[in-house]
Write a protein that binds this DNA or RNA. Structure first.
Lengths: 212, 212
DNA sequence: GAAGTAACTGTACGTAAATACAGTGATCCG
DNA sequence: CGGATCACTGTATTTACGTACAGTTACTTC
């Protein structure tokens, strides 16, 4: 979210306060009255600015169509039974689920998934497009050390973490993308180390569906 | 608080749900649409009844001037702030979110999604494959009545509910699949009726990733 | 069997509210 | 210096919304 000006913060504060107190967002007129403006456009301009900076969302043609974007993602606690950690950027060789790697926790009904996941991983790139796995999706992953052929796994080669379909024959492992634009990764277990971090058991897409 | 009738409870539930999902109380028109009424007065009557019985408070002359008074913990799941209903098979002409259509509730951190969804819908068929929407995925849908070009919408034509990308020019609406094996649906609004049930804001894949 | 309540349809109207357009200063910035 | 952003004033137009009025049908209750 872009930084707000002093005035914009006051407006945002008023919106929050109004929702808390009245159970609904304010109208332009109510903002005007609260701040002593003499023109509706003053309120409109502020709302546009706040929307542009991502602090609020405006719903065109809708009365009181203001939604405060939650910048405080309701931090679920680590001890919550139904919370899953979102694993962030992965640093040099550290196991992916190390505490330092955890970005945040999300409350999700674990039993939704079969089998049950242990953590979420944000997907990067288009390599698994044809498996319906897109960038910025959250992959629900179950921690396993070994994989069966055909399963989609989270694998680590050195510092690189990747999501691919697993295929092994003898000491040769192929990590297959689901996208003809990407090349398979071939690993000889006698020469290179491959760590299986987990197995994909589900997926969560939290953003909208913009045009690709 | 006086006891509510079955229908009145449903209305109250919808108001709660709307506030939770949209951050503001519904208008009369939104209630009418949600329940499939054909007259604004139906909604008005219910609101009056709920106000008379003390379940809500109405603020005269104020758009969305509905305040839920009681915080009775009636249907455990439906009241959960972080629960989403899974909408089941859709029957003849009934609005998709009609109470009777709800299969079950799932506990999911609403704040994960932007904007926040109102219900989940199980995806059927491969027509949105290239948008990463596969069969048996649960689509997180925000209830909206209109759509912008390019958005992925849940639309109803008669009794048929479909998920497609929305494109409108004039009175011609095209519902575009994201899969070359499927044909676009072309609708002339002057001849056919098209109901937008909602807008895709996220996705939940609960099964594993079997080989396609 | 009259009266009341619940749950609606259908029409109409005034106003609450969103929003476009045209400006005015003030400040910052390369 | 010109151009952007900020913070407004003032007017106008449309549409979203609340709400009144007049009915209908079915079910309960005294």
């Amino acid at each position: 979210m872009d930084p707000l000006t002093r005035r914009q913060s006051e407006i945002l504060g008023f919106i929050r306060q109004h929702i808390a107190g009245h159970g609904m967002p304010p109208t332009r007129a109510e903002i005007v009255q609260a701040f002593g403006f003499r023109s509706l456009t003053a309120a409109e301009d502020h709302l546009r600015a706040l929307a542009r900076k991502g602090a609020i969302e405006l719903m065109p043609g809708t009365s009181r169509g203001i939604r405060v974007v939650a910048d405080d993602p309701a931090p679920a606690a680590a001890n919550d039974d139904d919370a899953l950690p979102l694993v962030g950027r992965v640093a040099a060789g550290v196991p992916i689920t190390a505490v330092e790697q955890i970005e945040s926790w999300y409350r999700i009904d674990r039993h939704l998934f079969h089998p049950q996941p242990d953590f979420l991983l944000r997907v990067q790139g288009w390599s698994m497009r044809d498996a319906g796995i897109l960038p910025d999706d959250l992959l629900a992953v179950q921690r396993v050390e070994t994989a069966e052929n055909g399963q989609i796994v989270v694998a680590r080669i050195g510092d690189e973490v990747t999501v691919k379909r697993f295929q092994r024959s003898g000491s040769i492992v192929r990590l297959l993308p689901a996208n003809p634009d990407f090349a398979p990764i071939r690993i000889d277990l006698r020469q290179q180390e491959l760590a299986i971090e987990g197995r994909a058991v589900g997926l969560l897409r939290t953003g909208g569906f913009a045009l690709a």
